[in-house]
Amino acid sequence: MGMFLLRRFAVMLATALCLTFVVFALTNLAPNLEKVAKTQGNTRMSDPEVDSWLANRGYGRSLPVKYGEWLGVLPGYVIEQPDGTVRGRCFGQADARPPDAPARCGVLQGDWGTSTVFREPVGAIIATRLALTGKLMFWVMVLMVPAALTIGVLAGMREGSRTDRALSSVSILSTATPEYVSGVILITVFASSAVGLRWFKGTATSAMENATLENFLLPVVTIALFGMGYIARMTRASMAEVMQEQYIRTARLKGVRFRNVVLKHALRNALIAPFTVIMLQIPWLLNGVVIVETLFNYKGFGWTLVQAASNNDIELLLGVSVVSVVVVLLTQLISDVGYVRLNPRISVT
C-alpha cells in the first residue's frame, strides 16, 4: 500500500508539472502576451511599445526561465526600468532592490503571484472563491447522492420491471440535459417574470453572502440533475448484478422478505461501484460548476476560471489549473483506494 501511494503521488506530481507547463506555454504565446499588454497598458500601443512594455515586466525572456521563476526554482527577475527605478518579481517596483527581498519567489515558496485582472494575490482569490464553490458543491452532493442512489436501487432491484424502465428513462433524460439547457428551462419555469411561476430567483449573486432556498436552489438543482442520471445508472447496473448473485437467491428461497433481502443483503454490496463513480464524477461536476456559476452569476471558482481565461490572467489561470488538477487526481486516488478498502477481494499489489 505504501509503495502504491508513493507511486501514485509521483505520477500526480509529474502530471501537475506537465499540465502547468502546457498552460504556461499557451498563455505565454506572443498573441496572448500582446493581449495582456494592451488590456493592462494602453489599447493603442504600437508594436515596439508592446515589446518594451512586456520586456520591462519580465515577459520578454525565454519560456523555461519564466516557468522556473513561477515554480520558485530560479531566482526572480530584476529589471531596470527606463525611468531608473527597478522592477522585480519578488518586490514590485522600487528605487533600488530592497535588501530583505527574497531571491526566489514562486509556488515552492508559497507565492502564487498576483492576478492582473483583480490586482490581488492569487492565493487569496482562490481561497475565497473556492470556499464559495465548496458551499455550492456541498449542497449539490447533499441533493444529488441520496437521490441518485435511491433511483438506482429502486430501478435495479427488479430489473426489467415497469419501475425500472420508468426510472431508467428518467436517468437517461437527466444525462441528456446539460447544465446550460436545464438551467435555461428551470429559470424559465421557476424564475421568469414573463411566463413562469416566480418561486425562485434567476440569479445567485446574493447567495454568496446569504444563501436561501429562494436564491440558491436553482443552481444547486441544475448541477445535481446532470450528474444524477449517470450515478443512478451505474447504481442500477451494480444493483441488478448483485440481485442475480447466488446468496440473494438463497436468501429469497429461505423465505426472507424482499424488502429485507434488498436492504440487508444486496444494498451494501451494490454500493461499492457507485462510490467510485461518485468520486470520479466530482471533476466532471467542475464543468457544471463553471457553466452554472456563469449562468447564475455566482462568483465562485468556476466564475474565476472564466474571468482568468478570457483575460489571459496568467498567474491566476495557473493557480486555477493547479487546483483543478489536484482535485481530479485526488478524487481518482480516493476512488482507487476506497474501492480496494470496500472490496476485500481486490488488492493493489
Partner: peptide
Amino acid sequence: ILAFPVIL
C-alpha cells in the same frame, strides 16, 4: 489530457 478541465 483527461486531467484538464474541459472548459479550461
